[in-house]
Design a protein around this nucleic acid. Sequence first.
RNA 1: GGGCGCCUAGCUCAGUUGGUCAGAGCAUUUGGUUUACACCCAAAAGGUCGUGGGUUCGAGCCCCCCGGCGCCCACCA
Length: 905
Amino acid sequence: MSEAEQKMSEEQMMAKAYDPAEVEKKWYAAWESRGYFHAGDAPVEGKTPYTIVIPPPNVTGQLTMGHVLNNTLQDILIRFEKLRGRDCCWLPGTDHAGIATQTKVEAALRKEENLTRYDLGRERFLERVWAWKEKYGGKIIRQLRTLGCSCDWERERFTMDAGLSEAVQECFIRLYNRGLIYKGHRIINWCPKSRTALSDEEVIYKEERGHLWHFRYPYADGSGYVVVATTRPETMMGDTAVAVNPTDERYTDKVGKKLILPIVGREIELVADDYVEKDFGTGAVKITPAHDPNDYELGLRHGLEVINIMNDDGTMNELAGAEFAGMDRYACRKAVVAKMEELGFLDHIEDYTHQVGYSERGDVPVEPRLSDQWFVRMGPLAEPALRAVEEGRIRFYPERWVKTYRHWMENIKDWCISRQLWWGHRIPAYTCAECGELVVSKTAPSACPKCGCARMVQEEDVLDTWFSSWLWPFSTFGWPQDTEALRKFYPTQSLVTGPDIIFFWVARMIMAGLEFMGDIPFRDVYFTSIIRDDKGRKMSKSLNNSPDPLDVIAEYGADALRFTIIYIAPIGQDIKYANKMCEIGRNFANKIWNVVRFRQSKGATSADWATLDGLTAADLRPDDQWIIASLNDTVREATEELASFRFNDVSKTLYDFIWNKFCDWYLESCKPVFGGSESEREATVLRVFDYCLATFLRLLHPVMPFVTDELYHQMGFCAEDDSIMRASWPVCLSAETLAALGADAQAEALCDARNTLISNVRAVRSSYNIPNSRALEMVIAPSDAASEAFLRRDVTTLQSFLNCSSLEIRSGSKPEGPCATAVSDMATAIIPLAGIIDFAAERARLGKQEAELTKYIDSVARKLSNEKFVSKAPAAVVEAERQKQAEAEQKLARVREQLVAFAEG
RNA sequence: GGGCGCCUAGCUCAGUUGGUCAGAGCAUUUGGUUUACACCCAAAAGGUCGUGGGUUCGAGCCCCCCGGCGCCCACCA
């Protein structure tokens, strides 16, 4: 071969190591441009639809490791079902994420232009948010492509698209007309940073070490004082009573007396109410109806005055008194305590650890605030939604989340849906400025239906982000219109999401689906793991411990990341992740790459790689039968595992088959055939090899889409302009077919036993530091006739595995001269090692084996001599034990034979 | 105050319905340029499955107690 020719052939050859970057780019572009991801609106003859709607990430978000896990799982399901022949649709999109997005844009505005949203005004501010969305909004969607997600991009939706906005209005109006939406004057959770109401779910409780301040409130008649305990001194200017338990004897005769509220000087009453716990603090609690939900309720019962002393940004207003007005609530707390101390009303201070509610997005303590808000009455919606899960019409994986769901559903509270934000769906309600008449309508009424005036003013508030998300499974397909797509794709099949949004989203989608579509929104809900760093900390921006998935993909490849994350993510457990773990996936991809590289050095792909039709047991070697049986097991297991969301298991099943069975044993067994002179046999083995390859590439495709498609093409299993994506999922061979091929469980067991024999010989080599590359003379003494027959069937392969210069198979062989021996179930291997053998070491090794066997036989014998075991255990179990005993004893006898031989030698 | 999850080899974890179930990967040790792969091959060492009870012929696997870790829910100021 000339230098030029050699260079040319090297270029044609596959690279030694798999390089994912080019391959991933090439195939993703091809898949997308060829429309493989798209499902049409019209039903496809003979194909059942399979639908997943993506949990829409925040439009301003960036891909995190959590998204990687979540979306990889969805992609696996979609690709799996597509191969299984279903008409798959994975609908992608983003969420406008009201508070999160508005907060982000406001922060940028402040930083870059030193402006607030109020400086711009509502309209101009919203223009800025839309501009921001256009600029940064596509990022996470592009990142999903890098991961390989087969989303139907033609169906991409945004929660503030025109259609989805109409759905929100429709939903609001329907619920209003059913009496399930109402406007109420209540204490809600208020975020002073975002200056909006929040739902209960948006409040995160954090344990905080604070104080319990004990204040003296003097009686108006000068007869001493009562001590009240509080964690919030700054609210005392809003106190309108002090309450005690009616059965508290310490205060029985004091109830009804007047107290002077210190600092303020206002007179307040000592009231009795069951709400107060006698045993906590002093048994007397200051009552601030405007700033505590319990106090508010108590205030209603006792007709107390409500004094709001705070502004919406958490500063004090003039009702708090001139000396505190304008102060931040925490500055005010200090000032009040100082003042009380100065005035002699501070009794004492205790350390006190308690839970403080924080705004999820603003990350500041929430303020209970009395205001007018819109609410959804949840009880009637929750009831059927709970039943759907209880009755198993919707299934949760892992199932234990049902309990969490039930608990929430059974204790559900009304949902505060109005937000004092600008970014979001504006509430479709109008109030008459003249007569106060309220009209709920998609469009502004031209005149008040009651008084006829034209001054109808729309609500300023927008709706909670989740008020659009809960419609996602059907609003995205055109609801409230009765579209073809909606009829085809709803209900969807699987939902993959984190358990952290079970209340925010999953539960509410079930309620909305049943309410508006009259059907469940999805059948199966898979709750993913939470990804932590290798120290077990939750990945977060502030800790800076969250790797950028795009960096990981650049370093290891998307397939490697996908495989690794599935491989290390057990169902329902948190997972610890470090980038280095991606070596598992990278190495695996490389392994498969090299299988094809090896295969290609052996000539063209078999013409009839697609099936094993026409082959009979007589055509096949034991190793061929073994790999066919094993592959068949793998097809069955992988299918079951994917169908039951056991992603972690499927990654291990495929890894084990491909690496530990196909590469380590089958491929090695092929080498002597490929180098040999039997061309017919070679053709058959190549065909089995190709059949396995084509099968496991398809099995692996949902998890590792890129490398599998590349290799599928390399092998010519599909045309250049086609794809593994359009292939069909492997099916199990029938028992008859397997029997005809001699690829049954018995064949598998025999080959396994032979492999154990080979491993044992290798262990002997290793113990004498004899490299596997050094050929040795060997004698194999089969333990019985069946073993002997099996070993004689394919001496070529056996000899190749053992790497022996000469191989004699003769039952009853005894070592002659200096030999090492390896005793396994199938046979005893005798290896002459003149000059190397160490008799003492050999005796020690066999002695150890003898001891282990003796111990084992004892334990089995104990079991079998236990009458209770024999009488109570199932017959099959007892029989299996007897079998084990017999086998072990036979093996022990052979070990002892060797020992005797050594003793003589 | 309730509820849930976890505690298996040095590390990260598998162990479906109780009957070799004591496993994998990484790390470690030893040997290795065999017809793909050092992102590799062969072999070895390593755990009384958190503690203590119980059920059972038999328990990582079922039940109870205790101890650690974590999460969720809950209006004692």
